[in-house]
Amino acid sequence: ILPGLFADLQRLGQNGQYDRAIKVVNKILQESPEDETAFTCKIVCFIQLGKFEEALAAIRKNAKLASCVVFEKAYCEYRLNRTNEALKTLDSSDKSDDRISELRGQVLYRLEKYDECFDIYRGLLKNTEDDFEEERETNLSAVMAAMQ
């Protein structure tokens, strides 16, 4: 039953049908409450639907799985303008992947910590290779303008 549900979940995610995806992911979590992958998908669905409070509530209710959604949790806090909380959440992460750095750059920009922010964007531009290089260059320009 689970592989079929995960296949549905994948299809709905690819199609951006996040409302329906949440229904499927809830079925998966009924069968397998500690599934980190499914839980992460659920939080991603909430974020894509703009339901940041709901995402945070789901994370609070499931402390066991909270460590697998640190980036997502911090992103919700950032969108809710709880910027200092977002920074604390990012600092609590034991791994420093590029997504964590990306969000840390945005958080530091909002907190007007431009020197640290500048260093992060320099690092990201050096280390990442994806579709968002131009956006990062733009962000770096904004940081440099703010540093003047």
């Binding site: 592989p3 992958t37 991603v44 992103y75 945005q106 733009t138």
Partner: peptide, 21 residues
């Protein structure tokens, strides 16, 4: 206000489900 992109939103995506299928 200078342009500043929310790139992090673009990085919010499902983890790989390959080994669940």
């Amino acid at each position: 206000k200078p342009l500043f992109f929310d790139v992090a939103l673009s990085l919010v995506e499902f983890p790989s489900l390959e080994d669940k299928l």
